[in-house]
Amino acid sequence: MSDSEKEKNALGSNPISESAERATIKQALNQFHKMLEDFVSAPGGSACPQTMKAKTEMKKMYPDLKKNKNTIGSIKGISVGDAFGSRTETSVIGLHKELITDVNIVVHRGGDLDPIATSVVLILGSNYPGNEYKPGGCELVYCGEGRVSDGHKDKKLSAEDTALINSKDRDIPIRAIRCDDTGYKRYIYEGLYKTVSVKVVKVNMIYAFCMKRVEE
């Protein structure tokens, strides 16, 4: 599927057959927007706090979607190419829980309780020069947050970088969501990826995670 085809394939117009999980996700998103509209239009309402209020209410109404945030791998009802208008939407349905950080972290239940990454938001734009989305989407590069000291000694990994490395070591796939930061933001689900290599970017001394797409 080409990039242009993917970006037209917003949730709600996807030509795949409707599943119960997908119907629930569409219903939840529609209800979230209706609730947010009602909250904001009420006396004293403003977008930011009312968005969080609506998000909290959605957790109570759709507990099964809340569980998605801890899911490793793909989310039932969400397809490659589905597009979302905000990061809050991806959080409401559990595709990517975090509203600020670009890596979603959960505790690995394989016995060692180490944190792992389940999803990453790849933001493209002039403010994120290290992030790359290769043609066709088969490969991408995500630049982490942990910086390293001079001489590449005493490397200090952020919690997000540590989780990404743990996922790599355990061969765990990560959900990737691409966001174009030029103009109107859209968050597009690109599918599952695995980190194949980690390197240090010498210019700004941060870690770069090279990922390749795997089958859903």
Rank of each mutant, 00 (worst) to 15 (best):
F84E: 11
G110D: 10
Q27M: 12
A54R: 04
K156C: 11
K202Q: 14
A163P: 11
K153I: 14
I174W: 01
N104K: 09
K202F: 06
V80P: 00
F39H: 07
R22C: 14
K67H: 09
L29K: 10
G111M: 10
L113I: 03
T24K: 09
Q50T: 15
G136M: 06
S149C: 08
Y207W: 12
I100M: 10
F39P: 01
A20W: 03
D161K: 03
G144V: 12
R22P: 06
L65N: 02
V214I: 13
G73S: 01
L140T: 00
Y207F: 15
S17T: 15
T195F: 07
G144M: 06
G125N: 09
E37I: 04
E145N: 13
V214F: 01
D161E: 07
K168D: 01
S19N: 08
D161T: 04
V203A: 08
K53G: 02
E139C: 00
P49N: 11
L192H: 01
E132T: 11
G73F: 03
N9M: 12
P135W: 00
I172T: 13
I177D: 00
E98G: 07
L113G: 13
D3E: 12
V40Q: 08
K53F: 13
G111L: 08
Y193K: 00
A83L: 05
G144Y: 06
T90L: 05
G111V: 06
F84M: 09
R109G: 15
N68T: 11
G12H: 08
K212N: 11
A176G: 03
T24Y: 01
T71E: 15
N166C: 12
G81V: 02
D102V: 14
G130W: 04
H96N: 14
T71G: 06
S86R: 04
